[in-house]
Design a protein around this nucleic acid. Structure first.
Length: 427
RNA sequence: GCCGGGGUGUGGUAGAGGUAUCCCUUGGGACUGUGGAUCCCAAGACCUGGGUUCGAAUCCCAGCUCCGGCCCCA
């Protein structure tokens, strides 16, 4: 009986893994340059952590289980809640703002679709301790920079739930109804929304108008409805700062979140191509107050999370096989093998180096070197040993010559350095 | 939870009732100090379980799973 991979999970083969590592390295590097520090949280948590954040309904979509003492645990379905829990547990006293990033796998018990798996990876960043426009602008700019540096063609949609909420409150929507109304706005369910508003006896033409508008016109409209709005000022400051950063975005006040703790801006990034099918969103972010829910202070945070697998799906990486060197002992005689191992060890201090473990003949070893697309062969035989040299063979051109090990290492270093310059990596 | 389309060696395929084709792959051998060749040998598949039938990869049912979509999306 063959054991199959579990539904919605994936195996990553070397080519795919190499690509993922390249992307991951870029993401980390960018975050570090922006002065964010990495944190990591456990793969499973108390299930409560996630139900507090998202409601009991998500229990159906989590991998939950009980441990021996009966605690209800769950594989993390996302990373924002664990990060804020970590803040409350460990970092409350750290100087604000706290800037962190994270990368990790998450689990959701859903039907797999294109670019949607049961185990998936998220990369995200948070600023904890500020919900000022400056913090929001930085977070958006960071997400934008990631997209740019990865060379992904995407559009950034910016909204502001604070403003929408304010307008709704002014119009007479009660706190109790707010969540439901916001969810409908988020879904874009116009008819249902109008029905609900009418049933509450609330005039909603203006609101409907605003959430349909895009760009500056929405701001104009909002200004007419709520003359003295803090949120509006806040949004305008944010826009100003985004201009300073040179971030391109589409304003869309129809972006909402169904959950109450989102307080300020929200944004989403969509990939422009069609490689993701219906799952075009590659990033979501916003400003929220979650720490108090986990027993901490009421620190505001702003952050985002990228769907790493979707980034990997749309990221174009040039074929970049690493420069590999194969050491080829000519005969399986003790002295030749001994020399080969010594030479291999020297090469391994610098290069990706392969040595036969199949007891193969010279031609078989070269055939294998070819099969794994190695770049160079270092041939070691009695003739070379007698002269204290090795034969360095370029497997692409077939050229070869006898040189000393020092020369050999120097030449290979040249090649690897050039390869790194040319494509940025020798992974 | 729902809808549509698929599952044949590692991968790609042929096969439309008579236990499987070809390519590729892998291991061994020939050759033994120069590789993508050639030749020989070997290994490897009908998603699973029922049903129909003398006989099922093929037809029927159920399940699993993959691809795409709906719902959902913290």
């Amino acid at each position: 009986m063959r054991i199959e991979r579990v539904k919605g999970t994936r195996d990553f083969l070397p080519v795919e893994m190499r690509k993922r590592r390249v992307i991951e390295a870029k993401l980390r590097e960018i975050a570090e340059r922006w002065s964010y520090a990495e944190i990591s949280t456990p793969t499973f948590e108390l299930a409560e952590l996630f139900t507090i954040r998202s409601g009991e309904a998500i229990l159906d979509e989590m991998y939950g289980f009980r441990d021996r003492s009966g605690r209800h645990l769950a594989l993390r379905p996302e990373l924002t809640a664990p990060v804020i829990r970590l803040y409350v547990n460990e970092l409350k006293m750290a100087p604000k703002p706290i800037k962190v990033y994270y990368f990790g796998n998450c689990f959701r018990y859903e039907e797999p679709q294109r670019a949607r798996y049961r185990e998936f990876w998220q990369f995200g960043a948070e600023i904890i301790g500020s919900d000022r426009p400056e913090a929001e602008a930085e977070i958006i700019a960071l997400a934008y920079t990631i997209i740019e540096e990865l060379g992904i063609d995407a559009e950034l949609h910016l909204g502001h739930v604070g403003l929408i909420r304010e307008i709704l409150r002014d119009a007479g929507v009660s706190d109790a109804m707010m969540g439901r109304v916001m969810r409908l706005i988020d879904k874009g369910a116009r008819d249902e929304l109008m029905e609900l508003m009418q049933s509450m006896g609330i005039e909603c033409d203006a609101l409907m108008h605003i959430i349909d508008l895009r760009g500056g016109a929405a701001i104009e409209e909002a200004r007419h409805i709520t003359a003295h709005s803090e949120s509006l000022e806040h949004l305008e400051q944010l826009q100003q700062l985004l201009d300073y950063y040179g971030v391109g975005y589409d304003l869309n006040l129809g972006i909402a979140r169904g959950l109450d703790y989102y307080t300020g801006m929200v944004f989403e990034i969509y990939e422009s191509g069609d490689r993701l099918g219906a799952q075009r969103q590659i990033c979501g972010g916003g400003t929220y107050r979650l720490a108090a829910l986990f027993g901490g202070d009421d620190a505001p945070s702003t952050g985002f999370a990228f769907g790493f697998d979707r980034l990997a799906e749309v990221y174009h990486m040039e074929e970049n096989e690493p420069v590999r060197v194969v050491v080829v002992p000519v005969k399986n005689e003790p002295e030749v093998l001994q020399a080969a191992i010594r030479i291999t060890s020297r090469l391994r201090a610098h290069f990706n180096t392969y040595l036969d473990v199949m007891h193969r003949s010279l031609s078989e070893q070269l055939a294998y070197a070819n099969a794994i697309h190695a770049s160079y062969a270092v041939i070691v035989g009695k003739r070379e040993l007698a002269e204290g040299k090795v034969t360095l063979r370029d497997l692409e051109t077939g050229e070869q010559h006898k040189i000393t090990m020092d020369e050999c290492i120097a030449q290979l270093k040249d090649v690897v350095v050039n390869a790194v310059v040319k494509r940025g990596t020798n992974i």
